[in-house]
C-alpha cells in the first residue's frame, strides 16, 4: 500500500521535473535531445538525421499554439548551413531573429557569412 502511494506521488513529481509539455511556454520537441546526441552519439546524430527529426517537430509545433523554443530555428539553420543548403539556413536564421530579436547580432553575423558562402 505504502509502495503504491509512493508510485503515485513519484509519478506526479517526475511529471513536474521532466517539464512535460502542458507546463512549458515553448514547443521543445526533440531539440535538446538532438543537442545531447550530437555529443553522445555523433555518428548517428548527423545533420541529415537531426533535420529529419526537427522538421517533423516543426509540423507538430504548428499544430499547437506554442512558439518554438529559443534557439530551435538557429540550430536548424546551422544544420542546413553544414549541408550547404544556404537558402534554408538563411531563412532559419531570419526566422530566429524575427521571433527573438535578442539574437539579432549573432543571426546577422551568420546571415552575412552565408552571403559570402553563396558568392
Amino acid at each position: 500500500m505504502k509502495h503504491k502511494i509512493y508510485i503515485v506521488i513519484g509519478l506526479a513529481v517526475a511529471a513536474i521535473f521532466s517539464g512535460c509539455n502542458q507546463t512549458t511556454a515553448y514547443y521543445w520537441g526533440e531539440y535538446e535531445e538532438q543537442v545531447y546526441r550530437m555529443y553522445a552519439a555523433p555518428d548517428q546524430a548527423t545533420a541529415v538525421a537531426q533535420l529529419e527529426v526537427l522538421e517533423l517537430d516543426l509540423q507538430k509545433a504548428a499544430a499547437t499554439d506554442k512558439p518554438l523554443a529559443p534557439g530551435f530555428r538557429a540550430h536548424m539553420g546551422f544544420l542546413y548551413y553544414q549541408l550547404g543548403r544556404f537558402d534554408e539556413a538563411r531563412n532559419a536564421f531570419e526566422t530566429e531573429k524575427a521571433e527573438f530579436p535578442e539574437s539579432g547580432k549573432m543571426m546577422d553575423r551568420f546571415i552575412q557569412k552565408l552571403g559570402r558562402s553563396n558568392a
Partner: peptide, 16 residues
C-alpha cells in the same frame, strides 16, 4: 536551455 528559457530569458543555441 529548457529551464533557463522557460524562466523567460532568451538562450542562444548552445550547440551552435
Amino acid at each position: 536551455t529548457k529551464p533557463l528559457a522557460e524562466m523567460g530569458y532568451y538562450v542562444y543555441p548552445v550547440a551552435v
